[in-house]
């Protein structure tokens, strides 16, 4: 594969992420990786549900899901992250149309939204810890922070990844070597978003009810 080959919007293939064997391998491999991530999060969800609201005998009502969670903040976080998924769709749309500037811009906006989400999550955790809901407080606290924190760690990794992609490729534009990279990064970002939808539902909505 020749990286220096120049494409125009006309010569750019329909599925640039799968136009080379390396790209095809990345595409399939990444989907399989996401399948394994699903099982990973499923295990964490199962653990969380088993330990929800469980704590030492002395644990009071103040640290159960009903009294702890504040839905407005979590709703804001959800909206921010869902929007960031939309912006990553725009980025891939532009990538498929060989509009590199559009790709970079929308990926950049995705990163900013992701960072806002992460900041809100840190604020939320900080808030709970100040209330006395530490990681070691109860089985429930451990399960909660581990499930939501693992998602947060995924967001952080995604941010570093996409930022690196933007910086690394900024000067050279789109080619068949980096198109699959943008594509799987966006795929990863969607996955993070889907996991958050489940966290929002299972942890927060079902918890606050």
């Amino acid at each position: 594969m020749d990286v220096n080959k120049e494409f125009t919007a006309q010569t750019w293939p329909d599925h640039p992420e799968q136009a080379t064997l390396e790209g095809k391998n990345k595409f399939v491999g990444f989907w399989l990786f996401l399948a394994c991530e699903i099982v990973l999060f499923a295990s964490l969800f199962a653990t969380y549900l088993a330990l929800k609201n469980r704590g030492p005998a002395s644990m009071g009502e103040e640290f159960t899901t009903q009294s702890l969670f504040e839905l407005p903040l979590v709703f804001a976080m959800t909206m921010v992250l869902l929007t960031s998924s939309l912006t990553s769709v725009y980025a891939i749309y532009h990538m498929k149309n060989h509009n590199f500037k559009g790709t970079q811009t929308w990926m950049g906006i995705t990163v900013i939204l992701g960072a806002v989400f992460l900041a809100l999550e840190i604020y939320e955790f900080n808030h709970y810890v100040h209330l006395g809901f530490h990681y070691t407080h109860s089985a429930f606290s451990s399960a909660f922070y581990t499930l939501v924190g693992t998602h947060g760690a995924h967001v952080l990794l995604g941010l570093c990844w996409i930022t690196s992609l933007i910086i690394r490729n900024n000067k050279r534009g789109l080619n068949l070597y980096n198109a699959p990279k943008y594509y799987v990064a966006a795929l990863y970002w969607h996955f993070i978003d889907v996991v958050w939808v489940f966290i929002f539902t299972v942890v927060y909505l079902m918890g606050a009810m």
Partner: peptide, 19 residues
């Protein structure tokens, strides 16, 4: 559980060893 003092498997803290 061992490193950070989490309580997943410690039943006195509400954990569950069957997990």
């Amino acid at each position: 559980d061992r490193m950070f003092g989490a309580n997943f498997f410690d039943h006195t803290m509400g954990g569950n060893t069957i997990i």
